[in-house]
């Protein structure tokens, strides 16, 4: 469903990887090992060699915005460009999902400046999910969250993956989290992916 073929980008590669629909691949690795750069290359925000396929279509053969809408990157630091949260949700918001992340419908009228880092991180993830991507590239999606909020995020993502048969590439530094959420786990070291067995 989703495939990297000899992908080479700054500090990473060449990498090849096959991801089936509904799978969750966790990528662990020391900071500075290039995990974020790998995700940026896959979303085609950074120049790269090699090819990435989604549903049999090559990245280079698809218009870039269409590719990024299907293979969506959620960056570690959430970014906001309008004053209120709701303005960033062009397609509206799923109230049930908001609640599952421990947020209320009022969140849509909050001003960005008043939100905590943790609230912003959950809202940024939701903003991406509302676009219904087929592949999610998540860079430390629970990096600023406490345990309870982290579990909520993990649960919502698991459901999204199951119901929509979405593939997830999840960058984390937390091995326990990786063990909880991943179908397969890899370590990125020296630009190469090595699978963790057992």
């Amino acid at each position: 469903m989703f495939r990297l073929e000899q992908l080479v980008a700054r500090h990473v590669g060449p990498l090849s990887l096959n991801v089936a629909a509904g799978e969750c691949i966790c990528v662990l690795g020391a900071s500075g090992s290039g995990k974020s750069l790998l995700l940026r290359a896959i979303s085609d925000l950074d120049p790269h060699d090699g090819e990435i396929f989604f549903d049999g279509r090559a990245c280079s053969a698809m218009p870039a915005p269409e590719w990024r809408a299907a293979v969506m990157l959620v960056m570690a630091e959430s970014q906001w460009w309008f004053d209120t949260i709701g303005d960033h949700f062009i397609d509206g918001v799923d109230a049930a999902w908001l609640e599952r992340l421990g947020l209320t419908a009022a969140a849509m009228s909050w001003s960005v400046a008043r939100c905590s880092t943790g609230e912003r991180q959950r809202l940024a993830l939701l903003r991406a999910l509302m676009r219904r991507p087929a592949v999610l590239l998540l860079d430390e999606p629970t990096g600023n969250l406490d345990d309870e909020s982290s579990r909520r995020v993990e649960a919502l993502l698991a459901e999204y993956r199951r119901t929509r048969q979405a593939a997830v590439l999840w960058v984390s530094h937390d091995e326990q989290q990786a063990a909880r959420v991943a179908t397969r786990r890899f370590v990125l070291d020296d630009g190469k992916l090595t699978e963790i067995r057992g």
């Binding site: 925000l45 870039a64 915005p65 969506m72 460009w81 903003r127």
Partner: peptide, 9 residues
């Protein structure tokens, strides 16, 4: 922020 907007499609 610009790159986040690109990443959202």
């Amino acid at each position: 922020a610009i790159e986040t907007r690109l990443a959202l499609g």
